[in-house]
Design a protein around this nucleic acid. Structure first.
Length: 191
DNA sequence: TTCGTGATAGAG
DNA sequence: TCTATCACGAAG
């Protein structure tokens, strides 16, 4: 039977293409799973919002690891952010920003202390809390084990591109990708 | 709209 | 040592 897990080659292209193509795929993490409805692309070069612009440790991370590796960092003293390393035609990251919960929903509710499914994973810090993703997962290969991976789903999705949010530098690039009409995104798409 | 939070990096 | 900065979330 053919595997539906997304393999390393997927991340050996460029961050913008990868970010767009990840919308509509499934994130599988232990007993939880969700459909990705929002991502953002960050470029290692010529992108002031990318960690590689101001953080030597991020540049070393790119050097040291292969495509499809998890880049996880702590933000604002409270939240973990999940990114996938892209290394190919261009280097960079894809930030996973929001999911529609599919499996392990009761576990997510418990971890988040909430009942509303729309609020479980509607933001990069929320989904890591719901999935219990922390720095212990930093630098793991997301294309190797079936318990921490991305997987294709049968249905095609309609993807919208607009400006990244929550950043100040290089904020004009249309590198945020969302599933059209999804109620599970972190913030409504500007119309 | 505001504010807490802690890691990182660069300046002094 | 000190300080600015930050890809956030929750309360109000």
């Amino acid at each position: 039977m053919k595997s539906r897990i997304i393999r390393t080659a997927f991340f050996q292209r460029d961050p913008i293409t990868c970010a767009r193509d990840l919308v509509g795929t499934e994130l599988i993490w232990d007993d939880c799973a969700g459909k990705i409805v929002e991502t953002e692309a960050y470029l290692a070069k010529n992108d002031e919002a990318c960690h590689t612009f101001s953080r030597p440790s991020a540049r070393e991370f790119v050097q040291r690891n292969k495509a499809g590796t998890a880049y996880i960092y702590f933000s604002y003293g409270a939240h973990w952010m999940l990114n996938a390393l892209v290394k190919g035609e261009a280097d960079g990251f894809v930030l996973i920003r929001a999911l529609k919960p599919l499996r392990g929903i009761n576990l997510m509710k418990k971890r988040r202390g909430l009942d509303d499914e729309r609020q479980l994973c509607s933001g990069p810090g929320k989904l890591t809390q719901a999935f219990d993703i922390t720095n212990r997962h930093h630098e793991i290969d997301l294309c190797a084990e079936p318990r921490h991976c991305f997987a294709h789903r049968p249905a095609e999705v309609d993807v919208v591109a607009d400006a990244r949010i929550g950043i100040t530098r290089s904020a004009h690039h249309p590198w945020r990708f969302t599933e059209r009409g999804s109620k599970f995104v972190s913030r409504r798409v500007k119309s």
